[in-house]
Computed example of a mutant assay.
Amino acid sequence: MNSVNVTELRQHLPDYLKQVQQGEEIAITLHGKTIARIVPDHRESKREAALKRLEALRGTVIVGDILAPLDEEWTADADNL
């Protein structure tokens, strides 16, 4: 984790933001004491999360015709007749 003084941060903010964008954390100091940290945002959007869940399911789902009748006779209501 890099450490930078407030004045230095103000003068070179775009450079430090690029470092954060690449995954680095930056500690901001004032008079030698850390007062804040800039950290990368690792949260993903709802869309990205949904795409990852779908990708994880790829290859595990059985694809078929759910409307076509099976060779078996349905007997779920046989005890009610």
Rank of each mutant, 00 (worst) to 15 (best):
R37Y: 09
T75H: 12
G59A: 04
P40L: 05
I28T: 05
K33S: 00
A36R: 11
T29Y: 02
D41A: 09
I35E: 08
E44I: 13
S3G: 12
H42Y: 11
E25W: 08
L81S: 13
S45Y: 02
A78S: 14
E24T: 06
G23M: 02
E25G: 06
E8C: 06
Q19P: 01
T7Q: 00
D65E: 09
I26R: 08
D41C: 13
V61F: 02
A78D: 08
A78R: 04
R47S: 15
T75V: 07
D65Y: 12
N80T: 14
D79T: 10
D77T: 12
R58A: 15
L81C: 11
D65A: 08
I35W: 00
D79S: 13
W74Q: 13
E44F: 12
T29Q: 00
L17I: 05
L30D: 03
T29P: 10
V39N: 12
L9W: 05
V20F: 00
L54G: 05
E8R: 12
Q11T: 14
A49W: 05
R58Q: 14
L70K: 15
T34M: 08
T75D: 09
G64S: 14
R53H: 07
D77L: 05
L54M: 08
L70C: 07
I28S: 01
K46V: 15
E73R: 14
G59Q: 06
T60M: 01
L81I: 12
P69W: 01
N2W: 04
V39S: 12
R58D: 07
R58H: 08
A76M: 11
I66K: 11
L57D: 10
A68S: 14
I38C: 10
L57G: 13
N80H: 13
T75Y: 07
L67E: 02
D71K: 01
E8V: 07
L54A: 02
L9F: 10
